[in-house]
Design a protein around this nucleic acid. Structure first.
Lengths: 139, 139
DNA sequence: GCATGTGCTTACGTTTACGTCAACGTTATA
DNA sequence: TATAACGTTGACGTAAACGTAAGCACATGC
């Protein structure tokens, strides 16, 4: 088995650069469950929860809303014996894959444009520097 | 010269699938200027404004805040005769290019994972279907 | 044994990015 | 000429995603 490290809420928070409040909020909206230490009522997280949090933050990074993220993550919880559920999940996944492909294509185009832009600017800069050199030489 | 089509606010809005209010809001926060038909006070947009709006929406699509988008777009307005300004812009641009590259890499990884996931599910599905077939044959 | 740190719940506050509505002006059309 | 249709400027409303603060419980080091 994998090592079963468990994490407190502030451990996870500082690891991912977020606040405990954020994690509690994700629980509040049903995105991330936690087990509780009996007696203490303290939230505890295992490797699985940690992975799930990572997924959430990854989605957030690309501008998905928590609602969309929830929809996507819940695919991991599909019942693998229900044909109709499997089919719907695959279909939904195909749409999401297409979306991601589109995003990749767009980002590549954006990068190209930024590079062109960068070259224009470095060109302008070296022009200015050469002008300055000639100025100095002229004196 | 390029054809100088001009656009009303609702033309632009419907073209990009947003509302006039959104465009007015972008003006309110200093993201998108408009010329006004004198007398009428009606907002009008040329090709340049339209391109700028496109940039804004592209940034939004990838989860950038309007603040970040503003910072990025303002690079287009740099004074091309100021060396220090040019240098800073290039430096900033390099950071943004690196960010975009990272996003692309991450998205590619996400896509890979989604594809693996998809294969597991199609596998499960064909298993189920085969089981069903054998069941029918048994009768 | 008490202060300090960590966590809990509850609840109200805040920022971003618009939505929505009122009250009004201008232009095309029947 | 009146009535849509489209535009304008306020101004208030709102959903999402947390921030923040109060009041309390529990553990731990000195």
């Amino acid at each position: 088995m994998g090592k079963q490290r468990i994490y407190t809420i502030s451990e996870l928070a500082s690891e991912f650069g977020i606040t405990p409040r954020t994690i509690r909020y994700y629980e509040e909206v049903g995105l991330l469950a936690s087990t509780r230490e009996s007696q203490n009522h303290q939230r505890l997280y295992d490797a699985r929860s940690r992975a799930r949090l990572k997924l959430i933050l990854r989605g957030r990074r690309f501008g998905f809303s928590l609602g969309e993220i929830k929809e996507m993550i819940e695919l991991y919880d599909v019942d693998p014996t229900q044909k109709e559920q499997l089919r719907r999940t695959i279909e939904y996944g195909d749409r999401k894959i297409a979306e991601v492909e589109e995003m990749i294509a767009d980002l590549i185009q954006i990068k190209e444009e930024m590079l062109e832009f960068r070259e224009r600017f470095t060109g302008l800069l070296t022009d200015l520097e050469q002008k300055e050199e000639r100025g100095k030489a002229g004196v």
